[in-house]
């Protein structure tokens, strides 16, 4: 049996039907075509599926879709506004902070959440906060630099 869920995704009211066993990741990707969040491990160890749920980064593979009734969800698709990249996206792009790109949406979401919480994090805070996101290509150097650059480039939006 399917459950009806009403939620807000990237500022828009969204309704969907789901089985209780379906994760938020599955629904976002397979039902709502928001394929920006990626499946890397499906058990909360890689962060590729990170979305922001009620203001906090979560692994969407570890959220049941039925749980998000009434919730506010941000996905990577909603980060750029009016065709303008968010400073984090801009700095990832300019700083070559991605190679294969599969982990990138997850990093963008966690980094955005970090800068909203701590507009001027030091390297230690950045690395600690991003530890739940695995990247196998970059060695993290340029990712950390990109987050630093994003912090410097713009006052984080409130």
């Amino acid at each position: 049996m399917k459950t009806h869920v009403s939620t807000t995704i990237n500022g828009e009211a969204v309704e969907f039907l789901c089985q209780p066993r379906q994760s938020l990741l599955e629904i976002l990707r397979d039902e709502l075509s928001l394929t920006g969040c990626k499946e890397g491990c499906n058990n909360g160890n890689c962060g590729a599926c990170t979305v922001i749920l009620n203001g906090l980064p979560v692994d969407s593979c570890l959220v049941l879709a039925v749980e998000v009734e009434g919730a506010n969800i941000e996905t990577v698709e909603g980060v750029a506004q009016q065709r303008q990249l968010h400073p984090v996206q801009q700095c990832f792009l300019e700083g070559a902070a991605l190679q294969c790109g599969i982990c990138t949406p997850g990093f963008i979401m966690t980094s955005k959440a970090l800068l909203e919480k701590h507009p001027a994090p030091d390297e230690e805070e950045i690395r600690f906060s991003l530890a739940g996101n695995l990247c196998r290509c970059t060695g993290y150097d340029k990712i950390v630099h990109a987050v630093q650059a994003a912090a410097e480039s713009a006052p984080a939006p409130k």
Partner: peptide, 16 residues
């Protein structure tokens, strides 16, 4: 790059 920082890039699992 732009496609990859905005989630628009299509990886195999994104196909339906």
């Amino acid at each position: 790059g732009s496609d990859k920082v905005t989630g628009k890039a299509v990886y195999t699992d994104d196909l339906h």
